[in-house]
């Protein structure tokens, strides 16, 4: 477990399945969080987590030429999230309907809030942000999520999305301006 990421990636690309299992453990929360922010529900986030690692497993030979595994992994997850987002826009979105979630998932998701009023407030804010983010085009949305929610730098985002840093800045600027407009009422309350 003491292995560094580059060592684990090298071992994995050489066929070490234990190294792959460790990489899954280390990154699955990050991928889940990103996917949840992008898609807004557990079931889609779950699909992104699984599909991302399955794709990474099949691309293990390519990893020998990848300098930054984290960016590569996030890119795979981001691209799949964008694909799924577009699909959902056409075929209808999923929601975190309690009846569709396994029992243990509901318990954990409800544990993150302390009181019923917190629950209500958190849910309301989350829902408002989700609706606001949903109004952004996929590229602007992923840029805003990666930068303002997940805390990636502009350089990292440029590497993840394989675009110039200027594009990231521009997308972020437009996304923030739109979010400010959409969330005007919420922001004035804060």
């Amino acid at each position: 477990m003491q292995d560094s990421i580059p060592e684990l990636v090298k071992a994995f690309s050489d066929g070490d399945n234990l190294a792959f299992a460790i990489l899954v453990k280390r990154y699955q929360r990050k991928i889940y969080a990103l996917a949840y922010q992008m898609l807004g529900n557990h079931l889609d986030a779950d699909e992104v987590v699984q599909e991302t690692f399955v794709r990474i497993y099949h691309k293990r030979q390519e990893l020998k030429h990848v300098s930054n595994f984290s960016s590569f992994l996030i890119r795979v997850a981001a691209n799949y999230s964008i694909d799924l987002l577009r699909k959902r826009k056409i075929h209808g979105e999923l929601t975190d309907d309690p009846s569709s979630l396994p029992g243990n998932i509901q318990i954990y998701m409800s544990r993150r809030v302390r009181t019923p009023s917190d629950l209500y407030e958190d849910k309301t804010v989350m829902e408002e942000i989700r609706r606001a983010l949903d109004q952004l085009p996929p590229r602007q949305k992923i840029t805003a999520v990666l930068h303002d929610i997940e805390g990636f730098s502009k350089t990292e985002i440029a590497a993840i999305l394989e675009c110039p840093e200027a594009t990231v800045r521009s997308n972020l600027h437009i996304a923030r301006a739109k979010l400010k407009k959409i969330l005007k009422n919420r922001l004035s309350k804060e």
């Binding site: 299992a21 899954v24 699984q50 998932i105 954990y108 942000i129 919420r186």
Partner: peptide
């Protein structure tokens, strides 16, 4: 602040263990 505080819900350790096993079944 509102965006950075908007962290994704935690589905719990059991979920992540389950997902790891599923990924292993689908790949390795």
């Amino acid at each position: 602040n509102i965006l950075s505080g908007n962290s994704a819900p935690d589905p719990g350790e059991d979920y992540f263990n389950e997902v790891s096993a599923l990924i292993s079944a689908k790949t390795v």
